[in-house]
Design a binder for these strands. Structure first.
Lengths: 233, 233
DNA sequence: CTGAGGATCGTTGCATGCAATCTGACAGAT
DNA sequence: ATCTGTCAGATTGCATGCAACGATCCTCAG
């Protein structure tokens, strides 16, 4: 009788409210919709997302535990802000650790995982060719890298790496990459797919390391005047 | 005037209720007061700790994000349980990563940090000599290792390593070490203090790696009939 | 005696209310 | 004019109430 599903058309399928809020905030932060250091008000977010403050609080706590927001006792949460040194250090660490996870993951990838990697690769290439929608590109790229981390075979390594990986994603949003770096990244992705398909963990590890190191270097070009309107790695 | 700290003698310094609950649960899990896989009921913990369910929920969410408890959607939280393989893998990863943090941390240690390390070392030796209070030994040891992780100079590396470090602490609680391993660990701690005092990060890194690897090996002796009533690394 | 179905209980998840704390501005004094 | 003290608004943290989901036990049919 009173159940009117037309009003709440906000994807009721995917899990509980708390998880939805978390996923939404993670996406917004990753896509740079929040400025660095911007304060996140619980009630405002709650109204915006159509829930109460409780699930918002849960999501913010979770993000804080993962190092994506800073919280101070009675002041609330604000998006992390990085110094240039932080960013460099983060990429160094990621270059050290993520390839290890990649090597561990490749032999464990299922057919579905491989198919998803190929699909993501294809969609990213399509976006680059069209030169549009950098936010979607960021999202796809995050997912691409996340697959390796998630499948590394050890849940705690996965959690640990995500603590390094996600903040790096955030910093990356502020950087813009030259078309050449972009092209090189796309080739690295292709090679990663091939290595994964071949089940060659060492190959994939090597490619991933080169991939990350090359993107680190690419961050030095932010002052350049090239037509850098798309951003990803 | 009017400031009378005598009434609230429950360590008013350390943050709010939520933080206290978190610290308490972390300590209990680390000390093995909860069995592996034991379910943690919000209301029971709330009553036990004298707070409402809200801060308990917050603490459990935080522990879940760090991988110390498992949560299932409408079933709540339970303490993580590890397979033997998990434990081995965790020690491998820790042996790879924690020494790196140690090397980074040593040049950054303050005089207070060094003094605390020496103090912790002395107290652990006293406990070993007396052969008493393994729980306190565990606590001191955790703090000893945590100092290096916290001072590694990169907040996100710190978070990432704690994700590997804390679960290892949990698994360690179930293991009992022979007196010889114990003695070796104490010597490693002494050497770490020396290296830290000397500001030699590489030395400390090497000692830390040996230290962790030796404890990993020590876990194979759990069937032995030696008088292993104390436990630490 | 065994298996299936249903009902009751317990627990979690979300919403809301209240108190404590922090932020900001205004008024007054030096 | 600048600085300080006070006050008002706003926001967070905690406590509690309600609904939904899951688990367990009992009953009943085969």
């Amino acid at each position: 009788m009173a159940s009117d599903p037309s009003a709440d058309a906000t994807e009721p399928s995917s899990g509980d409210a708390s998880d939805r809020v978390y996923a939404e905030l993670l996406a917004r932060i990753s896509e740079g919709q929040f400025a660095a250091g911007e304060r996140l008000y619980e009630q405002a977010l709650a109204q915006d997302l159509g829930v109460s403050r409780t699930p918002v609080r849960d999501a913010l706590k979770r993000l804080a535990a993962e190092g994506l927001v800073d919280t101070t006792p009675n002041k609330g949460a604000q998006v992390v802000s990085f110094t240039a040194e932080d960013t460099v250090a983060l990429y160094d660490l990621r270059a050290q650790f993520e390839p290890v996870a990649c090597r561990l993951a490749v032999p464990r990838l299922s057919e579905d995982d491989l198919a998803e990697l190929e699909d993501l690769d294809a969609r990213m290439q399509a976006i680059v060719a069209g030169g549009q929608d950098p936010a979607e590109l960021t999202r796809l790229n995050n997912r691409f890298h996340a697959i390796f981390v998630e499948r590394c075979g050890n849940r705690h390594l996965s959690i640990a790496l995500q603590a390094l990986f996600r903040p790096a994603v955030v910093t990356r949003t502020f950087r813009q990459y030259s078309p050449r770096s972009l092209e090189r990244s796309m080739q690295a992705h292709q090679q990663l797919v091939e290595a994964a398909r071949a089940g060659d963990g060492e190959w994939a590890e090597s490619v991933m390391r080169s991939h990350i190191l090359s993107t680190r270097h690419a961050t030095g070009h932010q002052g350049d005047a090239e037509d850098v309107e798309t951003l990803t790695e």
